[in-house]
Design a protein around this nucleic acid. Structure first.
Lengths: 215, 215
DNA sequence: GTCTATAGGAGGATAGAC
DNA sequence: GTCTATCCTCCTATAGAC
């Protein structure tokens, strides 16, 4: 290990990474809480407990801060996909992933970025870590979607890309926060509800006795 | 008519209203295009073709501009509900309404506001026209939802409020813009797709031969 | 790399003449 | 009510000492 060869350098490097992790954690939380535009760099610095100028030594711009948070989330997603049981069917894997993203959202750990901001989009698209993660996740989800369609578990008439977008969209579904504000249902009930409407729709399924996961 | 009694005052009043309508139209378009935070008051003024200070004679703040746009949309929604054929079933009415809101969104006429901004929320909640319109629309949709559930057209196990939120959410569904950017489908196809996933879900309906409205 | 202090600029809102 | 000109706050980003 490098630690044994040059412990001092490695220690510094570890401190550096730890600090950057702390920064990313703060950014992640603030992005989830207030969104990109409402989050200020001063706020992030105060939350981390360092000076704003120090922040800019780690990340060159506010956009790059947000991108780092997205990369972090993407890595967590990849780890989650890795850990999914190989025995479960494609559609079960998809359900589990959506469930997980909605849990993140309800826990205030899902950063929300405006899809319109162009400078942010540029930064994200120029970030290889982010783009690679996004591609990887999309490819894996896409393969499961096609499997599930072939197995008759998902509607095969829907374009796979539309299904993919629909699943991604659950991670920023306003229905989640509205139901949470209403305070009538627990987080688990909310997730079960939205998961049900996502996969089974709002319409009654007259012949399929789909079990509600609510009670 | 007041015009016959005092034409001068009425003319002025009509000019005033016409100008305010022009302002609201600009705000509406800009809100749909860039969102609340990215829209600047300077931009609105330039778009309308008046000075910024004049704008502030009509509306006391940026938040009130957005609120006026929302009131306008709410009125259009009420008019649309009024015009729905009384012969159609409750679920058909709901489908038609959702279809209409998605059409607005795709046409760039659906203002998008951040649900997090608190000063904006305050302004909206203090706006009686907006709140009354929202209540009215929600009541009417809510009644149809309950009818449709009683008629076995919508899943009766879903809380009506969750169904209502889910329908509202289609008006700001990011899936719409993503599919539009992909440029593979026409607006009508996109609407049919999202309408299908909304009501019928992503899962295959093994026994109900639900017709895809795509082809 | 961390700090204090500040540049630089965007944007919401207003003053005051007409 | 409309204009021009301006205020003032907030925010991103940087300079420069340590």
């Amino acid at each position: 290990m490098a630690t044994l060869i040059n412990p001092k350098v490695s220690f510094k490097a570890q401190m550096l990474l730890a600090r950057e992790d702390a920064i990313i954690a703060s950014v992640n939380r603030l992005l989830a809480e207030k969104g990109f535009e409402a989050m200020t760099v001063d706020e992030v610095a105060a939350d981390v407990g360092i000076a704003k100028a120090s922040l800019y030594k780690h990340f060159p711009s506010k956009e790059d801060l947000a991108a780092a948070a997205m990369v972090s989330v993407m890595r967590r997603a990849q780890a989650f996909l890795d850990a999914l049981s190989p025995e479960s069917s494609a559609v079960e894997k998809l359900r589990t992933v959506v469930q997980w993203t909605m849990g993140l959202k309800l826990a205030g750990e899902m950063p929300s970025l405006p899809s319109q901001n162009s400078s942010l989009r540029s930064t994200l698209m120029a970030n290889k870590d982010y783009m690679q993660g996004l591609m990887d996740v999309s490819d894996r989800l896409g393969a499961w979607i096609e499997s599930a369609q072939a197995e008759g578990e998902l509607n095969p008439k829907l374009p796979a890309i539309a299904v993919l977008y629909t699943l991604y969209a659950r991670a920023c579904d306003p229905v989640l926060e509205f139901l949470k504000i209403g305070d009538l249902y627990s987080n688990e009930e909310i997730i079960a509800l939205v998961l049900s409407t996502c996969f089974d729709g709002l319409a009654a399924r007259s012949c399929l006795p789909t079990v509600m996961r609510l009670t």
